[in-house]
Nucleic acid binder design. Structure first.
Lengths: 243, 243
DNA sequence: CGCACATTTGACGAGAATCAACTGCAGTGG
DNA sequence: CCACTGCAGTTGATTCTCGTCAAATGTGCG
């Protein structure tokens, strides 16, 4: 069979991220997997304060964890893409501290009781337990990254930093084409992720295109030079007058 | 005996946060507690990438999780105060994704193996297991709060939001005096927490004092009106011409 | 008393927000 | 087939928040 291993082609099995699971674990996954569900963009998957007891595996599309201020300002705390778990916590009875919203049309698989069962008996499902802990720690690391981005980086650095992060995640999911990865988010949504206005996102992207850092085609980004982009993302204060 | 229950007076027992622990749990804590250690301000307690296998309970002082950019910019992702665990994770072999630094002189108690033992057998140490999960979830919530603060809030809103958060945490620790709580951080450090320059922190604090929101005495903040401060922190766009 | 460090002040500039209008484009229906 | 519609992207003008630089003032402490 063709070796195209994407989240969508593999279904919930993609959860394993290439880790070899025991038969017991494979079966557990099958037992607790719902069927694929499609949701429209804008759909609120989880409201704040709700229990995170039904994590969702993303087959395609983008989800964001969203916080609103009372005057309408919006901040997206984290993004979730194909191959990742969203509305997820390793802790039983954990509550959402944001809304989880479909930022594009998404296809997801709900799990029910899977995480609870695995984490209640990590000795019986060792690989899955490690995997879930890994997901949790990666999510944590992303939150800290996000704080640094919006707290201390300039607009073009924020974009670069996010681009590198997304590139690596899509690469792992097998959804990159060279240095190109999907980017269906509107500039308004990007603004809410990066703490910038739509207009400023627009101008920043234009500048980065002019600088030869980024190529944006319809619904995709191509990072021209990963090293260079990572350099910009590191906050090295390189001014616009380079190469 | 006098009912002054502060982290410092109670030692690692303060970890329980008032939850009634079983004898078994109390003993486990005693077994895994180190003796109090004092560290100078600036001491790096944990470097990035190090294992978080020895969480520290703070008896007094402030710790921050710190990220540096390559040109020297600094962002503090989270703060930890007396009565809280720092350099902590419920996950075995979890690594730090920031430095943990003493922002003031601190007194801490190191634990060794405590969390591992509890989380390996949550059925045997149910209260502690719940407690540790609670700590983890609170830390998570704080990270999301921090993203919203630095991503979408104006300077005075960030200060208000942080002030309310800290007030509640010190209240729980029994370290509030009315609406007054400890604030030994320099304005430079506050800037690194809130993603603002020292100068702008200074001017923002002056404005908030003039507005009657905040009283700053030496190493303490007093929130004049919690409701009003929370209102500002919610991002309601109330302009300066109020009250 | 004097040193180091924290806070404060002023002048200026830079990065980003806002407002408003215009363009481009894909989907829809006449 | 093409005008109509709605939304995403783009542009220009202007304003505002905040950063930077530099110097002065204040404060705790050996």
């Amino acid at each position: 069979m063709s070796p195209i291993l994407t989240p969508e082609s593999r279904g919930l099995a993609g959860l394993s991220r290439g880790v070899r699971l025991s038969d017991r674990e494979v079966e557990l996954i099958a037992v607790h997997a719902g069927r694929p569900v499609s949701l429209d963009a804008g759909h609120e998957i989880i409201a704040p304060e709700m229990f995170l007891n039904r994590p969702k595996y993303i087959l395609s599309g983008w989800v964001g964890s969203v916080r609103m201020l009372s005057d309408g300002r919006r901040q997206i705390a984290d993004l979730y893409v194909a191959g990742e778990l969203t509305a997820f916590s390793v802790h039983p009875r954990a509550k959402a501290n944001a809304s989880y919203v479909a930022l594009t049309p998404v296809k997801i698989i709900e799990t029910d009781g899977l995480v609870e069962n695995v984490m209640a008996r990590p000795d019986i499902f060792p690989e899955l337990a490690v995997l879930f802990r890994l997901f949790a720690q990666e999510a944590d690391a992303r939150l800290v990254d996000q704080i640094v981005r919006v707290g201390r980086m300039l607009a073009h650095e924020r974009v670069a930093h996010l681009a590198v992060d997304l590139y690596r995640r899509f690469e792992r999911a097998g959804l990159c084409d060279g240095r190109k990865f999907p980017m269906p988010l509107t500039q308004e949504i990007l603004g809410d992720v990066l703490g910038l206005s739509t207009v400023h996102i627009n101008r920043t992207l234009q500048q980065m295109r002019r600088d030869g850092l980024l190529i944006t085609t319809s619904h995709h980004w191509e990072i021209v030079d990963i090293e260079q982009m990572a350099e910009v993302a590191s906050g090295a204060r390189a001014r616009k007058s380079n190469s």
